[in-house]
Design a binder for these strands. Structure first.
Lengths: 325, 325
DNA sequence: ATGAAAGCGCTAACAG
DNA sequence: CTGTTAGCGCTTTCAT
């Protein structure tokens, strides 16, 4: 790196003190027009850019936030991240994205890293495996998205969530109204979402006087390595004619099985919507989560918290939309 | 924020100087076993974490890199970013992702931001609208991905690219071998990739003694707002029986048109592969780019450059793979 | 083996 | 309106 231009050199160039240069940047109203001009000329001439590092050091604010999610490769999270980034950029914030892969150790490490970097706050899709985030982050603001905080954190932090139960209920309800006679489910038992989605599934069955059989439910591992196997088992053993998938990754794996085994007849529903669902030969019912909006809201919530650390905790539930195909 | 624990407090706790505490962190071999123990006890007791900010300030290295891409919502870039992040995390680096949306101004602003933050380097999918990145980043290392640097930068920077022309050639060649009699193309005229892909398209036609008609080629805008229109026009006007799409976004828009107009018969090829292509009713031929690998390589290249600023510039071309469906 | 002191680039009292 | 000074938390000579 070529040596960077500092406030000192600008001060020299303009024949003023460093403090004055700093004032031109931060409180120009306290500086005379002429001086401002001289200083600005110097900045242009020397191509001065203030060191964000030094500013952070002094001001105890980095204008950086962390976003801790499971995996950017999942388009749900990608959209969410984009929502956050757009909102953040507008306010002059930078975003550091961290993928936990649902691994609590990774999550821990990333949060430590964000603490070390003095991020101004964190937006977190918790793995659900840490009961006490508060002790990890000191008093850094945290906004929980997608998954509910648990244990000690439960009522300590702002949240932006969706109504998983209701969304799932609607999807399964729609399957049955389309004529499904036996609906099975595959969900991922991650954090709070899996359970909630399963609750919706069960309630929908009950609402239609369908029996709830535990063998009709399969719990996926996060990585989806056994989804295909599980799906095949459900299909063959239970002769189900409809399948409710807990997220878009699961659906993808189910589609693989259907294709491989040339199973043409299967009603499908899934939590989370993706554009390409339109082009699949099966008419996929989906629960559309406003991922981008969740991102935006989470960021705004974080900013509010930063501006007013003592305001009461907020819990935001955003609407899902049922897409029938 | 509760006041953070500093080296000073550890020093007090252990009854040593700040310098010694610092040494325990950075050069423990210079410190006696006993002192190390005392200091470490203090760190544990007070839950000390070094301020990355202060370290960056002193060491002139932030352990942070910037990744400037067009849009994380595009799964190609998402995968690329994940490749970078995984590699970066392993080496203790944080990543700041910036979406330009192919907007040169945004790109400019983001690069400035990264310079202000003293990022150690930038991985850049250039919009192609700045001829002289070198002047924007001072001597910060830059690695170009996906798109070639132009103008003054052309031979100044390391690159990790794919062979767009060859990949496109193969895809179009495959279309023709599958029996296509008139292949049209829609590409996005972004940076260098559009032109190169079009070259491949043209060469494939020529290789099969097909005429090259300029009205068979449509140039998309980046946002894809008119892709559908363009596609429909090509299909109706030219009666083409095959379409080569310059990227996965274009393909998606083409699929929408085909669906809406119930056009069942169309051979499709696209640059870039996505898993869901398997489930679409059309047998999509695709050029699979190793996006994750590009990310990994780009990061490694950047690290190499950082370790050895004066080594010769490298130009890496990664292999694409033709997927026939 | 350890400490004192300077300084990275910037901002914010405090004086004048 | 402007300058002087101290200090954010850390690392690194230079002494001892």
């Amino acid at each position: 790196m070529s040596k960077q231009v500092t406030i000192k050199q600008i001060a020299q160039y303009a024949g003023v003190s460093e403090a004055t240069v700093s004032r031109v940047l931060n409180q120009p109203e306290l500086v005379s027009k002429q001086t401002i001009q001289k200083v600005k000329d110097g900045m242009d001439e020397l191509q001065y850019r203030p060191s964000a590092l030094a500013q952070s050091m002094r001001n105890h604010t980095t204008k950086t936030i962390g976003v801790v999610i499971s995996n950017v490769l999942n388009p749900f999270f990608t959209t969410l991240v984009r929502g956050i980034e757009d909102a953040a950029t507008k306010r002059g914030y930078s975003v550091i994205v961290c993928n936990t892969d649902e691994n609590p150790d990774k999550e821990q490490r990333y949060i430590n890293m964000l603490v070390d970097h003095q991020a101004d706050g964190i937006i977190l899709a918790s793995t659900g495996n840490h009961a006490n985030y508060h002790s990890m982050v000191n008093d850094m603001p945290l906004v929980f998205i997608d998954r509910m905080p648990q244990g000690k954190d439960a009522n300590l932090y702002d949240t932006v969530l969706v109504d998983n139960e209701k969304g799932s209920f609607n999807a399964v309800d729609a399957l049955i109204k389309q004529g499904a006679t036996r609906v099975n489910a595959i969900v991922s038992p991650v954090a709070t979402t899996g359970t909630e989605r399963l609750n919706g599934f069960r309630k929908a069955l009950t609402a239609h006087d369908f029996p709830i059989r535990e063998q009709d439910i399969a719990l996926d591992d996060y990585l989806g390595q056994h989804t295909a196997e599980l799906a095949l088992n459900l299909i063959q053993t239970n002769q189900c004619d409809a399948l409710f998938c807990g997220n878009n990754v699961i659906l993808m794996n189910v589609l693989k099985v259907l294709k491989e085994w040339q199973i043409g007849d299967m009603k499908l529903a899934v939590f989370d919507d993706q554009p390409w669902f339109d082009f699949v030969q099966y008419p996929i019912i989906s629960v559309d989560q406003p991922a981008y909006l969740i991102g935006t809201k989470a960021f705004i919530t974080l900013m509010d918290r930063l501006a007013n650390p003592d305001r009461p905790v907020t819990h935001d539930i955003v609407r899902t939309k049922l897409v029938i195909r």
